[in-house]
Amino acid sequence: MEDLAANFLTKYNYWAFIALVMIGFYAMIVKRNLVKKIVGMNILQTAVILFYVSIGAKRDADLPIIAHGHGSASHAVHAADYINPLPHVLMLTAIVVSVATLGVAIALAIKIYRQYGTLEEDEIGERIRNA
């Protein structure tokens, strides 16, 4: 029990990530409204971003901006003093990608709305069958 509690407390970032992935998948699979699915897709992408960023954290470490004065660049820099910059860089890319995907998805949703006047999948399916 002690073990479980310690496990729970030291890894809470992963619990949050797993919960978000499940919420995202649930929205994308169960919901029949296209906008809700788009929201679910975004939650899923955000979950992955949370996962990566939380890898980069280090206890008692600072922002990855090297403290330096002019002419004092020679003093040693210890990697343990700064958090891991790489996941942040990767996730800047992933954020941009998720914005881009969201933009295209909304554009297609607008097009669908123009065509069918609704964003409910069931109603669209009905209209396609009737056409």
């Binding site: 496990n7 890894k11 797993i18 954290a57 206890r59 470490a61 996941p87």
Partner: peptide, 15 residues
């Protein structure tokens, strides 16, 4: 999850 390094572990392989 049991194999995940703890939050903020400075000895995690990624770091």
């Amino acid at each position: 999850t049991p194999e995940f390094p703890a939050w903020g572990d400075p000895q995690a392989p990624a770091a």
